[in-house]
Amino acid sequence: MKSIVYNMGYFLKEAKTLFKIDLTSNILSILSIGLIFFILALVISGWDIMSFIVETVEREAEINVYYKEGLSDTEISKLLEDIRSVEGVGDVKIVDEEESYLRMKDILGDEAHILELFEENPFSPFIEVQINIAESDVILRKLKQVENIEYIRDNKRVLDRLNDIVSVIEFVGILVVVAVGISTLMVVSHIIRQGIYNNRDQINTLKLLGAPQPFIDFPFILEGFFLTLIGGLIASILLFVLLNYGYGQVELAIPFIPLPAADSLIRSIVTFTLVTSAILGIIGSLLGVAKQGEGFRG
């Protein structure tokens, strides 16, 4: 350990020399690792965003009950009571035309001016019903039997579709993580083996001088670590640019889609990418140097 601390400057210098000896291969490796990690970061971002949307929709699970026109206040009060009596139903409240209009205005934000195209308020009053999403099928069946209900709008189909998409992204994500892991390990271990081959005379001399195997291996492990870390950094920069641009576009095109905060999403994906790249770099290097110690006789 003391020897590693004493020689850290030497190890870093050696790693730099190893990098320079096979400069073209190393640069190409960094670029390919960068692109591989960029794909990984994209998939993980998609996974995160979809999970966030599903969670938000589930958390705010509610159905909108539209009732027949021309009901008296007494009939509306009875309808509210009937709905409340259904098991699994939480808060029940009336949202009038005015509130519906204001809510849509909030959702549309900067684009709310399109509402001004309507001469009259186009929204109808409805009853907002908080429900337990797990019991939504039973609740909907029971509500359909309640008198004076014209139409029920629920998010279940949307949720099911979203969950399907999340499952697909999850599956693709796992495949991508495995593929990224294997290909990174292959690229790094190959480049390290190439470095060992290029430096076989130096390694042989060190063995004859009695250098311990970790001392010989350490610069190669550092080389692999930096290769993948720089690759991870390139992927992070690409992701940062793409997410910032993509968020702006999505918010303009579909402002009502709930998205996780861009800053925290980028921070978590960048941390994940850098940590994963560093770990894979070290493992790949260890695989690369694995058989080096066998010929201890020099």
């Binding site: 005379d201 042989n204 004859l208 009695g210």
Partner: peptide
Amino acid sequence: ASNIRRLRQNIGPVFQEFK
């Protein structure tokens, strides 16, 4: 292997081809 390393650490070799 580890004793060979230790032994070599106590030797000052001057190789024919310098190394």
